[in-house]
């Protein structure tokens, strides 16, 4: 049993519930025990770092200080939280005398996608494959903070990342090339400037459709929400329906490993993924 601390973050308790459920399920299939951080609080997200430097550091650092009480690595599924934690880590290392943060920089902070794309995990997945995703054409949508800035993420091929591609290939899917792997979806502007997010989403969806993808796969809660929820409304501007399900990579791991709860996760999507998966004989 691998013992890992877990910081779900706010959206996994809300709109990204199927991401939380599928991570928990996949972890248990891989004999990983998740210990949710006791009394975790919001990392501050973009609103804190857009408002005040010290406040942003303190809100995120509070959680890392809790994680630091144990020597387990910390699994973080939301890339916005992950980014804020890595910023605090940089601050803790560069300015150990900074008193606004109570974290000393000793936790190994792991973003969920990087964590499940480790070489040894990929090997294990190969041996546990029950239902290879044969015939499923997917584009990998990494988004921004999953790869940028590389000084924090340590992702070397940040303009054309490959790790999610490799993971989906191991699961048996057909991964299609496209040029929008790391383009921005507009993130939290969706609440305040919905018009801009519609434009960016429409471009991403059109490009995925042009690549002839059956689905878009991501590990980012904001990308998932922005692309999944707006397809109906974009129909007219885009000249026809998209019907492109946007899946979390953990849902696809669960599907390929034959987890019993897959249908429950899939039922939480706005753009229905079941139809396309059924056509491929996968559900």
């Amino acid at each position: 049993m691998r013992e890992v601390s877990y910081y779900p973050g706010c959206s996994l308790h809300g709109t990204a519930r199927e991401y939380d459920e599928s991570i928990q399920a996949v972890a248990s299939l891989l004999h990983i025990r998740l210990h949710e951080l006791e009394n975790w609080t919001c990392c501050g997200a973009s609103s804190a770092h857009c408002t005040d430097e010290a406040l942003a550091l303190a809100l995120a650092a509070r959680n890392l200080a809790i994680a630091e009480r144990s020597d387990r690595e910390l699994l973080v599924p939301c890339v916005a939280c992950y980014h804020r934690f890595k910023v605090v880590e940089r601050e803790a290392k560069e300015h150990p005398q900074n008193r606004t943060i109570l974290y000393r920089g000793n936790v190994s902070i792991r973003y969920a996608l990087d964590f499940f794309c480790e070489g040894s995990t990929l090997e294990e997945l190969k041996t546990k494959l029950v239902k290879p995703l044969t015939g499923l054409k997917a584009v990998c949508y990494y988004g921004c903070l999953t790869v940028r800035p590389p000084k924090l993420t340590s992702i070397e091929d940040y303009e054309n990342p490959q790790h999610m591609d490799r993971l989906l290939e191991v699961l048996g899917a057909e991964v299609l090339p496209w040029s929008y792997k790391t383009d921005c979806c507009g993130a939290s502007l969706v609440v305040t400037r919905t018009d801009l997010v519609r434009k960016l989403s429409q471009r991403l969806l059109s490009m995925a459709r042009e690549a002839e993808a059956d689905c878009i796969v991501t590990g980012c809660t904001m990308c998932q929400a922005n692309l999944d929820t707006r397809q109906e409304g974009l129909k007219r501007d885009a000249g026809g329906k998209f019907n492109l399900p946007v899946l979390y990579f953990t849902e696809l791991i669960g599907l390929a490993l034959g987890h019993k709860d897959v249908k429950k996760w899939l039922s939480r999507h706005i753009t229905d993924p079941v139809r396309v998966l059924r056509a491929k004989g996968l559900v």
Partner: peptide, 17 residues
């Protein structure tokens, strides 16, 4: 939006969407 978001953290610790 940012100030409402921070008020939410201040009063609840977490964001309730």
């Amino acid at each position: 939006f940012h100030s409402v978001f921070l008020d939410e953290i201040k009063s609840r610790g977490r964001i309730h969407e």
